[in-house]
Amino acid sequence: MSIEKFFTDQYYKQANLIWLLAPLSLINYFIYYLRIGLYKFNIFKQKKLPVTTIVVGNLIVGGSGKTQLVIYLAKLLKKNNINVGIISRGYKGKFKNTTEVFDNSNPVDVGDEALLLKQKLNIPVFISKSRFDAGNALIKKYNDTDLIISDDGLQHKSLIFDYKILINDDRYVTNHLLLPAGPFREPLSKILDNDILVLSNSLESKKDFFNFSLNQKVTNLKTNEKIALNKLPNLHLSIGIGYPYRLINSLKKLCDFKYRIYDDHYYFTNNDFKDNFNYLITEKDSVKCTNIKNNNIWVLKSDPRMCPVFEKKLLGKILNG
């Protein structure tokens, strides 16, 4: 069992050994509230970019749908003639300095999520350890940018955002502690903050929701051929995302398949696709599989849905300043 799977199971299935890390979580609480105080009393300085900014984030680690929401928002804003750029920290990328992401960037260098955003949206995407530096670099090169979306970054207190959107995850958690004993990056009470717009990712939500259902057609990674899932025999799901069980449970309603779970952001090799299966992968994983020598890899896609009332309200705020 990998370390990542151990923590995932402890957070979302059954907690036992994880309680040994509770003292470290208490230290994180102290650091969290200390940082809040230092920013509140202007000891730590906050910065503001010269364009409208939106940050999309969540409270618990892994797989809530942040990147899908960023894609949805960017497409929505582009349809309303707003020039959008994306900033990200390029998680797991090996880059050292502030970097622009291109269609042909190596996911090892820039991270899989940043590359997926670039390929799906074809808009400026910049990554940096500092989101302020990423935003400045983006605006300097693309000076017609009207709005910047930060993929993740609610915990990035040094940058002031105009709009904060938090995805409230509906999955079961074994406890509500901060990392590492619990899955929370910030206290649960954060969802009560007046300056945060909260979206639920639950399929049961009737109000203020953002969720998605699996498309029943898949796309061949090599040929772009589209085919219905139920037309493919001998299916095998290979998945390396933050919380794979939501997708696995949704897929079980559509077809029979075998599966193997890899660590989030895992980099696939030819050896992972050596058997005689029709392999299913996610869009995020697909950007890391372009060099895999197998013609039977099929990409799963999802159909996103946002609460129309929330969408109209958010769009109205942005368009009217």
Rank of each mutant, 00 (worst) to 15 (best):
T98A: 02
L192W: 07
D151Q: 10
N270T: 03
Q216N: 15
L214K: 06
F6E: 15
I139F: 04
N278I: 14
L192E: 12
N16W: 15
Y32F: 15
T290Y: 08
I196G: 02
N294Y: 01
V61A: 01
N83D: 12
K313T: 14
F268K: 03
L159A: 07
N295D: 14
H265L: 03
N143L: 02
F210C: 00
S2A: 02
C307K: 09
K226A: 09
F95Q: 10
L77V: 02
V51T: 04
F161H: 03
G182Q: 04
I160G: 03
L221M: 06
K79N: 14
Y12W: 11
S202M: 07
G153F: 07
I281Q: 01
N80I: 06
H236K: 12
G316E: 14
I241G: 06
L315Q: 13
G135H: 15
E204P: 07
C255G: 04
E311Q: 04
K253T: 10
F210E: 13
S213Y: 12
H236E: 09
Q14E: 15
K48A: 08
N230H: 15
L197G: 00
L232N: 04
I160A: 09
L21E: 03
V56N: 01
N296G: 01
T99A: 04
T269N: 05
R260V: 15
F268P: 07
P124F: 04
V110D: 00
N168K: 11
K94I: 12
G63V: 05
T219Q: 15
K120G: 00
P183R: 00
P187T: 07
K190T: 14
F6Q: 05
L24Y: 13
G57S: 06
G153R: 09
G242V: 09
I318T: 05
A22D: 07
Y259G: 13
S302W: 00
N175Y: 08
K96I: 12
I82L: 02
Y267N: 04
